[in-house]
Nucleic acid binder design. Structure first.
Lengths: 334, 334
DNA sequence: ACACTATCTGTAAACGCTTTCCGTTTAATC
DNA sequence: GATTAAACGGAAAGCGTTTACAGATAGTGT
């Protein structure tokens, strides 16, 4: 009827349950007992009850990965990265989708508080609700954040080096001859908007390129927003390239240019940021900055596991991963 | 130091632990005790230890959702559907990604055997390894399959009504004037290949349309395969439409037609199957059959929950959900 | 033969909860 | 004031593990 327990295998292997337990946990037992144990386990189809084990061990060897929405596969490489390092350290991953869950946005906190997981990785590129960080810090569970985070959050986090990424773009454009470069910025509430724009402005200054406030137009990271912003930028005399602070915006810009009779990259170059899957399918294939998602996942996983392995009181760390420029066909050599 | 337990709550609320437990499990208690309990719980930040509870209750109120690969978001609406009904019945979902997991392809079976979940939903459109079904049937855990399944698997499953879907396509094409229709079939190892082709042949017969074995060309559900198949089909004299048995193939066909100087839909109409996200972005936007993913998820979740709720010995059921034709611009009215 | 480690094994308590049993208190109804 | 029903307390057993601790067994050197 019920499932076989450790007692059952002790009985058929003619030994005690502590020996069985020890064997199961990797302690050495005599050759003969080992064989008896193995055959008993096979015969009974025994599998340890993980709930009992977790109860006494007071840890689960599982980490919770909470995403805004499982249906959003922008993250998928991050998840792969986390799963990779988690598994190789003996941890299981369990996923929690914030938006689709009826316990609501904070439901994931129960995962930790009810001791279903040992630690949490929170991956989110959406705007965080105010107070999320505070709530999360109150958790006694180790946690690391991936995504749009601030320096002073005092929670461990990993993010792309946004400033570096855009700086690379400017340098690239400069190298291939561009001198008057426009910029489509993102929504102010994201710190990555700040850092990306800083990368743009810093690089311009570094290269002694001219700059002008009117060359930066604010937008909202949507295709339609990119479209509008591009129309403004196209009015600027002598502009040869525009950098959009994300790919959707860049695609909107592409579309706008086309509609207005500009040829990309002949008449104007455009570059994006993120390297979302479609960016290579649009026409022309978009030059962009690839977010190092897999590595971000790895780093976050590693950081969490370090915390879990005794280094509990380790200070919050903020890891910035350098992204890579992917040159495709949306920029012209001048 | 440690986490607060039910005993602590009892102590500060000045009641007994059995009362606390009863309260936590939804039995009615006096108004005053309820208040005392609530404030004690809040004060201590008490959260029940789910592992202890699962141990004694011998169920977890969790269902495992195993997918081929979390990174593949073709499924995402299925997942949403499952999560929706699971949550509304008090079940938690935990995801397991087969390919990315180091325990290997069958690692998900431990989820059940170690009693981490009460039931399993296996969603897979990839080719299943031989023996998977057998292994899964040996599990004492309730299970339902989503995807490419056979009638005689004797496991509950839900799938699209493939035959119906393609039949709809043929009728649609017939209605707008097409009479000579080609078909690009899929890999033989999928039962959906069989049913879709059956839908094509059946509809032709129904409508007293001419048919010919050479109008059906086998392919492999890849873009490149669709490309090759289309080249053959385009040689047939007087053909006005071709049905591809999935969207990738259809896109390959589109590309091929373009390269060969045919205009879609002017010179030839093409329709796909699946309604993958890109299908609306290609040129021209692809007419296709939308898989009812969300509903499939719902149905599967419901079926599993029925099994879990006592109806354990219910016979395996096979649910076929009717898909819907999405008419876009890749077909011409003749 | 002996003592002496070094391995291996069994006993029992513990983990945090649910549940049952039963006797007691409290409140509601007539 | 008597009767009934609802809520409660306390104790105890049990869920399936792990883990001291102490006991047994084997292996070694004298």
């Amino acid at each position: 009827m019920g499932n076989p327990t450790i007692n059952d295998v002790a009985r058929v292997a003619k030994t005690s349950k502590s020996t069985v337990s020890r064997f199961l946990n990797g302690y050495t037992v005599k050759k003969e007992t080992e064989q008896a144990l193995r055959s008993a386990i096979k015969e009974l189809k025994y599998h340890p009850n993980v709930n009992a084990r977790r109860l006494v061990k007071n840890h689960t060897r599982a980490i919770g990965i909470v995403v805004d929405d499982i249906a959003n596969n922008f993250y998928s490489d991050i998840l792969r990265g986390i799963e990779m390092v988690a598994n190789s350290h003996g941890y299981q991953c369990i996923y929690y989708s914030r938006t689709s869950n009826y316990q609501g946005e904070y439901g994931f906190m129960d995962l930790a508080q009810e001791r279903q997981v040992d630690g949490l990785i929170l991956v989110s590129f959406l705007k965080r609700s105010r107070g999320l960080i505070e709530k999360v810090k109150a958790l006694s569970t180790p946690i690391v954040l991936i995504g749009d985070t601030n320096k002073n959050d005092s929670v461990s986090s990993v993010d792309v080096d946004n400033e570096f990424g855009i700086r690379e773009v400017v340098h690239y454009l400069h190298r291939i001859g561009h001198r008057k470069i426009g910029y489509i910025s993102g929504p102010e509430e994201f710190s990555s908007t700040y850092w990306r724009r800083k990368g743009y402005e810093g690089a311009l200054e570094n290269l002694h390129l001219k700059s002008d406030p009117s060359w930066i137009v604010a937008s909202n990271w949507s295709e339609e927003g990119g479209h509008r912003a591009m129309r403004e930028l196209l009015n600027i005399n002598g502009i040869t390239a525009v950098i959009a602070s994300n790919d959707e915006t860049a695609i909107g810009a592409l579309l706008c240019a086309n509609e207005l009779g500009y040829q990309v990259p002949l008449d104007i170059s455009v570059v994006g940021f993120d390297d979302i899957p479609v960016s290579k399918w649009v026409y022309p294939p978009l030059t962009t900055v690839k977010q190092p998602l897999y590595q971000m996942g790895e780093k976050a996983g590693l950081e969490l596991i370090k915390k879990l392995n005794g280094e509990k009181e380790r200070l919050p760390e903020r890891l910035l991963i350098k992204p890579k420029l992917i040159a495709r066909q949306s920029c012209r050599n001048l």
